[in-house]
Design a protein around this nucleic acid. Sequence first.
DNA 1: TTTTATTTTAACATTTTTGTCTAACAAAAA
DNA 2: TTTTTGTTAGACAAAAATGTTAAAATAAAA
Lengths: 197, 197
Amino acid sequence: MPLKNTGTEQHIKDTAKRLLFAEGKLHATTQEIADAAGVNRTALHYYFRSRDQLIAAIFQEAMRDLSQRLNECMTAEQPFKAKTENIIAVFLKHMIAFPYQETFLVTEINTLGKQLISDIQSAPVKSYLKEAAAEMEKGTIEKMDPVHFLMNLFSLLSYPLIMAPLYKKLFQVSAKDFRELIDERGKLIVRLLFKNK
Amino acid sequence: MPLKNTGTEQHIKDTAKRLLFAEGKLHATTQEIADAAGVNRTALHYYFRSRDQLIAAIFQEAMRDLSQRLNECMTAEQPFKAKTENIIAVFLKHMIAFPYQETFLVTEINTLGKQLISDIQSAPVKSYLKEAAAEMEKGTIEKMDPVHFLMNLFSLLSYPLIMAPLYKKLFQVSAKDFRELIDERGKLIVRLLFKNK
DNA sequence: TTTTATTTTAACATTTTTGTCTAACAAAAA
DNA sequence: TTTTTGTTAGACAAAAATGTTAAAATAAAA
């Protein structure tokens, strides 16, 4: 299927991502996506044949994207702490823009099946985990299964952004104040994960 | 609308919760819910009039439930650390059973609007936050905005469970090993949040 | 047992969402 | 300019999901 590619195909995907990942509209219809993208709904079918295939395409792009971001951060030639600070900065920025991306991935992973997860490379993660283990030997971070360290890192980064609408109510914090809290978290997470002595 | 109440109404809600909160099937149809509950789809309409009202009922129950769990834990007459350990135990247990409950709440909060959040009481949370602030003065926990402390707590508890399907792939961990990791987290989180000297 | 109220079911109707087909349109190639 | 190729739009069709009605089944009350 040859395409002239005026950018419409990518534009549709980007719009869908905005709706799904940024606005959290996890059951967006093809009509809503088309409207948001400013195209006729038929265009979706022209480029993707079906809604499912559009979703699958977005899923794969998001996976590739995530995997790539991980790889770049984790294989950088940097000391461990600086590397981790970079991971925090990069992922925090991305999570602020697209807080629901990981939620989407998880909820679709069951239905879309595991065949689409081939894109994910675990080698860079493994090497990062090894570095973390070495740091634990050195004593700069608490001893634990390195997988815990990484889960802690991502949890502290992601969860508050996903839960923002709920937390604003629960803690009675304004949108502005909440945003300030989020901005503080980068440094806070580093302090928490590394022995600050 | 008088009801004989053979338990069917609650049974439907419980089944829907299992599907939505435990299995993460966030777009379950009325048919799927009815099938899972072993009742005719019409029963859903008899008890709840419409799908939206069923969802709203579940939403409210989940909110009430969450609020109540928070209240009980946070207003208990206990020293701060013990209280926090109890929160971890209680919420970890609940999250293992219903990892997607909070995700559901957040994604529905936008569509269902803010009118349904009246159930939530912020007083107990506020008093817990005050206790946390006092502990920071005493030096048993790191100094920070107490809201951060609470967000850290919930993040470390919830996120790994939500992301389980993704993390198993990313870290190449079997379901059994992952379950073991989760079981370790309770103690780990306490060590991380409290100055362990 | 008959009556009554409540619950469950099957059949049907409506709405929403998705998918298809064909024609119009635009741009580049012949 | 005609032809070819690629893209967009409108009308229509099909499928999926939701909602309604009326009748059957069940259990309690008279």
